[in-house]
């Protein structure tokens, strides 16, 4: 065991942890991606509520973003992981199932990430919408587009373009946040490293490997997002 090193963690040979780490990385990306997309949907409605909602709708949206940005994400994860069983167990009992029911860790994690990132999405979309020139929206209505068509063809693409840098930030945040889901036992990168660290007594090596994997994923996705940003803003004049 003395020559146990990073190479063994990433090795796909027998005795190596490569396959497990790769599967864990896929899980991290899956849960982060699902949470991010669900968060974007929440954020779209949140931004809509803040921009054109009545007073009550607006204050609900304001409350949502204030609260979610003020409490630790770990607490939200606990809420969904443990809280779901408080809701689901009585329902399960009603249908004849006995024992403890709770959301699978994957869904609880996605939901928690979605709710947390939804608050950030709301602010990013709202900010981006405000940058869209009013003239362009007016022009869309003036050419006879319906509200839905104007939203689909004009408002949504322009907002997304301006939101892209903010969305890239949220993605990096979500990716790092997904590591918190390890507390629920979902086998993503950090949980897999804990398992490896426990069974080989090489915690530093495994957590270093985890750090490297997160670094790789965040760098690679940062690269893609930068490329996307350059691609989608090529029509903009640079100051």
């Amino acid at each position: 065991m003395n020559d146990f090193g990073l190479m063994t963690v990433f090795s796909f040979a027998p005795g190596g942890w490569g396959a497990a780490m790769a599967a864990a990385s896929a899980m991290t990306i899956a849960v982060a991606m699902a949470g991010f997309i669900a968060g974007a949907i929440i954020g779209t409605f949140g931004a809509w509520a803040k921009i054109s909602g009545g007073r009550i709708v607006r204050s609900v949206a304001d409350g949502y973003t204030t609260v979610l940005r003020g409490i630790p994400d770990l607490l939200v994860i606990y809420l969904f992981y443990f809280g779901s069983s408080a809701v689901l167990t009585p329902i399960g009992r009603f249908f004849g199932a006995n024992g403890f029911l709770s959301l699978p860790a994957f869904f609880a994690g996605c939901l928690a990430i979605a709710i947390v990132s939804g608050a950030y999405h709301t602010e990013v979309f709202r900010g981006a919408y405000q940058v869209v020139a009013l003239g362009e929206i007016d022009a869309a209505y003036a050419t006879g587009m319906s509200r839905a068509l104007a939203f689909r063809r004009i408002i949504a693409p322009l907002t997304l373009r301006f939101a892209l840098p903010g969305l890239a930030n949220i993605w990096q945040l979500v990716l790092k946040e997904s590591s918190l889901i390890s507390v629920t036992g979902l086998v993503e990168i950090l949980r897999q490293s804990q398992i490896g660290a426990g069974s080989t007594k090489q915690p530093f090596t495994f957590f270093l490997a985890a750090a490297i994997l997160y670094l790789l994923i965040s760098s690679a996705s940062g690269w893609v997002l930068q490329f996307a940003e350059r691609h989608f803003t090529r029509g903009l004049r640079r100051g």
Binding site: K176, L190, S193, F204, S218, G222
Partner: peptide
Amino acid sequence: RSTPLLVQIFL
């Protein structure tokens, strides 16, 4: 900045 805080704590 590009690794999760929890990983740093565990390290």
